[in-house]
Design a protein around this nucleic acid. Structure first.
Lengths: 138, 138
DNA sequence: CACAAACTCTATAAAATTTATAGGGATTAT
DNA sequence: ATAATCCCTATAAATTTTATAGAGTTTGTG
């Protein structure tokens, strides 16, 4: 399951995607719309900005706005950014690899092999769905 | 990512799958083979037995054994049993459904729709991989 | 029959992670 | 100058995961 952080990020991105004509959107507005804690959401938007998805403007009249095309924001990226690995095991993660303690040898581990396949197929799904697909469904 | 519980369950099932000729296998043996805590593994094997994957024999000479064909044990089932939902959001979970607090209406939520698709496609993957596939890779 | 080996079951503790809050700083429009 | 707004880091609270403990129960064996 996705963490609330990621779920909130998706809601925020969706909201921003729906308000691209406005110059900026307040954290407050997104938080209120979805009943999310302002401060918690603030941290999430900050991460999205640092990762290059959002732009922001400080001071009075400031706020956030989307700086990427919705179709250029695949679910895989958002999930990785906020939740970490997409792979089901650390030993098959492309971006967050770590060996598994209880495995003597990865090369002869059937679990490792199957999970690498699962990762590849899962990635295909998540790379092919973007914020645009979410917006299309609203 | 899978919890350690699920990961250990997969290791245990694999071990049991590789020792089907023996009548029973000791918890201890599996725990030692993978450096897992005996007591933690015990709880896991108990769950697997209650769910109908394993049989057990008490007393001296007892232990656990696989009572299903490895190809009849899809990853989806093991993951659901020990980790819970496969869906990325509670609002699209088939087996553990719960509404999302921050969603006003599921029918007009683009996230919900996309995640339902992701769930369907992910399920296809996990239902098609079984313990047999793991055993084949060992 | 006594005993030891093994699983059964439930409760609880420890650790880790996620979720949420807090508050002072920096910037900007008016 | 002031108020609105994002920036940043730290910490607290809640939840979940991981691990441990210990008293049952069953069974093979001498």
């Amino acid at each position: 399951m996705l963490s609330k952080k990621t779920k909130y990020a998706l809601h925020a991105l969706t909201y921003l995607g729906k308000h691209r004509e406005n110059k900026t959107v307040l954290i407050q507005d997104i938080a209120e719309e979805h009943g999310i804690s302002h401060k918690f959401l603030e941290n999430i938007l900050l991460e999205l900005r640092k990762a290059g998805y959002l732009g922001s403007k400080k001071g009075k009249g400031g706020g956030y706005y989307l700086i990427k095309e919705p179709k250029e924001i695949p679910l895989s990226r958002i999930i990785r950014l906020l939740d970490g690995p997409i792979a089901l095991l650390p030993c098959v993660s492309l971006n967050y690899y770590e060996p598994c303690d209880e495995c003597k040898s990865e090369v002869q581990c059937g679990i490792n092999k199957v999970m690498a396949q699962v990762r590849d197929e899962t990635l295909k799904i998540l790379e092919n769905k973007s914020l645009q697909d979410i917006l299309d469904g609203e």
